[in-house]
Nucleic acid binder design. Structure first.
Lengths: 246, 246
DNA sequence: TTTAAATTGTGTAATAAATACACATTCTTT
DNA sequence: AAAGAATGTGTATTTATTACACAATTTAAA
């Protein structure tokens, strides 16, 4: 193995040059991916957590994560974890931040790359029978294992920001949704109340909603119309998302 | 060493459990930090690059990076690199993204965390005599070593976005600056032309600029007034940055 | 010393976007 | 048949964005 990686040689700083023994003994870390998987159900934003089986954090909730495999890209690892846990593969997924504090894992140094994912909770409802996995209300998440609360908070903040810039929210909804459901979703994500008329005006003026000429069923009040998001039109559109400034 | 990290046991997926031998042999990677250091000089946005001394990329330009030390947090590593190269320590620095494609480094798997930094180029002009280090015009950066072009592009995009949301730009300017310099900076970062009167109106209405009652010197035309950014007022302000939508 | 060149400093009118706000309608439940 | 609950709709006000022109100041050149 030739000169590789990085090392300081005397006073002169060289780029990416070191010797094999250093690499093996000191400069390598374990690398994991943790997924913050969001869902939306009963008008609440949810996050999918698993009970930790690590000694120090036994019984506490943690994010879904795993070590990155030797021949696996980071995004691939994130999709693998999601697939294993939910069975879903064609969903929104995005890298959020990397957490690498020296003592974040009790056993050894583990650097973790956090990913945020948005899924339609109905699509995989059946797989969460396992009592180690649970959908938690986002607003009632408090203590978590490791530094996962910090990772979760960071992801939620980023979601709140991103959802104003891009039409991400639809990934969390059923294919057919009412405007009330859409507004409830935005209110849940942004943790705020929105004016109903202005919300509707805004979404209709963007013109990416297709009226399905159907109405809700089984609601104890006047049913609303159902819509779907026009992904094809969105993809063609040059200006894309106008931005949502509530 | 107890059960640690992550492993699949049969069909059941466990969280963070594995055995020592796996950790050492397969699941560890080299971890580096790469800094995209931006500066502003002669009305152009610049990036600080170093000539690569790696065999495959010899002579090509690369970002300033180094392996993360065993007992070093990621942010610390980024600040260390910046300090070593520029002598500056109290500057804007922010994690951008992590790049971990399997073959991004020719020698072995090296996952790198990219950081973006904004510095006042005047403050360390003297240290860049070394001909391996060079300030490049951002718009003329083309080929780079490794996947550094991709890292650079990602960082520049993020900078363009962040500078509209937060008052970052001032880190790139001298303490005293004219409004023309400020506008030139924004035009350089955003790669666009802005209306001078609207730009001034916008910044004055934010009310974070302190009029220093001084004027520029040595300009071949009517000199402009000098200002500084009121960081104290900004920190106290509840609404912070109004957002710049050009 | 006069003139040309360059850039600063300033305000208003027009357009677009965000906000606040109320009532009739439709469907379900009792 | 009446009460409850949520849908569907429009306008007026305020705020932000954009487009745009001319006099004043300084330096450099004639």
């Amino acid at each position: 193995m030739e000169e590789l990686l990085a090392k300081k040689t005397g006073n002169k700083i060289k780029t990416f040059r070191t010797i094999q023994s250093e690499v093996e003994s000191n400069y390598h870390v374990a690398l994991s991916v943790d997924c913050v998987i969001f869902g939306f159900d009963e008008n609440k934003l949810k996050v999918l957590l698993i009970r930790s089986d690590i000694k120090n954090y036994e019984g506490q909730w943690s994010l879904l994560g795993d070590l990155v495999l030797p021949e696996e890209n980071l995004d691939k690892a994130a999709y693998r974890i999601l697939k294993e846990r939910t069975g879903l593969s064609d969903v929104f997924m995005e890298q959020v931040h990397t957490f690498g504090d020296v003592n974040r894992h009790p056993a050894s140094r583990v650097v973790t790359v956090a990913y945020c994912s948005l899924i339609n909770i109905q699509h995989h409802k059946l797989k969460i029978l396992d009592n180690e996995l649970h959908w938690h209300d986002v607003e009632s998440v408090t203590e978590m294992a490791f530094d996962h609360k910090k990772i979760f908070d960071t992801s939620l903040c980023q979601l709140q920001k991103r959802v104003k810039e891009h039409p991400l929210g639809f990934s969390l909804l059923p294919n057919k949704f009412s405007l009330r459901e859409l507004q409830n979703l935005y209110e849940a994500i942004l943790n705020t109340k929105l004016d109903r008329r202005n919300f509707r005006k805004k979404f209709f003026s963007m013109d990416f909603l297709i009226d399905l000429e159907e109405i809700e069923k089984d609601v104890p009040h006047r049913p609303g119309k159902l819509y779907k998001f026009d992904y094809a039109k969105f993809d063609r559109s040059p200006k894309k998302w106008a931005g949502i400034a509530f």
